[in-house]
C-alpha cells in the first residue's frame, strides 16, 4: 500500500516522463492538476485509463475572455488510489474545437453535450453533441460565456412583476393577526361565561 502523497508523485512521474506539462499544480494530497498541450490530451487520458483512472468524473470548461481562450478541464478518478487528476488544456476562443474523447471514456457523451451547450465548444467525434440537452430552444450566445449578460436576457425575456405599493391587501380583508386576536378574545369571553 502506498500513501497518498506518493500517489501524487507516482502520477506526476507517469505523466511528466512522457509528456510536456505546461503547468503542474498539487492542489491537495488527493488532487493534482496538469496543464498540457491540446494534442496530448487523448494519449494522456488513454494512459491514465490503463493505469487505473478508469472513471471520467467531470468534464467542463472555463472561459478566459482576456486571454481569448477556453480552458477545458477533464477530471479522472481512480477507485483504488485516492487521487483525482485534472487534465487541463487551452483552446482558442474564436473557433473552439476539441476532438471528442468518446472512444476513451464513453461517459463523456453528455458532458460534451453540456459543454457544447453552455460554452459553444465543438466536439467532433461525438455524434450527438450538438443536440440540445438542458437549455431547450436556446436563442442567444451560450450562457456560461463571460460576455453573456444573464440579467439583460432575463429582463428581455421574462416579464417582471410590478409593485405600485410595498404591500397590497387585495381583497380588503382584515389582517390575520387581528382576526386571530379577536377570535382569542371571543374564546376567552365564552369560556368565562361572558364575565370579565
Amino acid at each position: 500500500m502506498t500513501n497518498s502523497m506518493s500517489n501524487v508523485k507516482m502520477v506526476s512521474e507517469i505523466i511528466e516522463n512522457s509528456y510536456k506539462v505546461l503547468k503542474k499544480e498539487v492542489i491537495s494530497q488527493y488532487q493534482v492538476s496538469f496543464e498540457v498541450n491540446k494534442d496530448d490530451v487523448h494519449s494522456i487520458l488513454t494512459l491514465l485509463k490503463t493505469s487505473g483512472w478508469i472513471q471520467l468524473s467531470y468534464l467542463s470548461a472555463i472561459d478566459w475572455p482576456e486571454e481569448n481562450e477556453f480552458e477545458l478541464v477533464y477530471i479522472v478518478f481512480n477507485w483504488d488510489k485516492a487521487v483525482h487528476i485534472q487534465i487541463r488544456t487551452r483552446l482558442n476562443r474564436e473557433n473552439p474545437v476539441m476532438n471528442s474523447i468518446l472512444p476513451i471514456f464513453p461517459g463523456c457523451k453528455y458532458y460534451e453535450r453540456e459543454t457544447h451547450e453552455f460554452f459553444g465548444i465543438k466536439f467532433p467525434g461525438n455524434p450527438g453533441h450538438e443536440k440540445q440537452l438542458i437549455l431547450e430552444e436556446w436563442d442567444d450566445i451560450p450562457p456560461l460565456r463571460k460576455d453573456f449578460d444573464p440579467r439583460a436576457y432575463s429582463d428581455r425575456k421574462f416579464v417582471k412583476r410590478e409593485y405600485s405599493n410595498d404591500f397590497v391587501n387585495l381583497n380588503g380583508e382584515k389582517s390575520k393577526q387581528i382576526a386571530r386576536e379577536e377570535r382569542k378574545e371571543k374564546i376567552i369571553k365564552v369560556r368565562k361565561g361572558g364575565r370579565k
Partner: peptide
C-alpha cells in the same frame, strides 16, 4: 414563483408563474 425570488436575474428561470 411570485417574482423570481433570488433568481430574478437568471437566464434560466421564469419570473412570474401566473403568466
Amino acid at each position: 414563483t411570485i417574482n423570481g425570488g433570488i433568481y430574478h436575474d437568471s437566464h434560466a428561470v421564469i419570473n412570474q408563474l401566473n403568466r
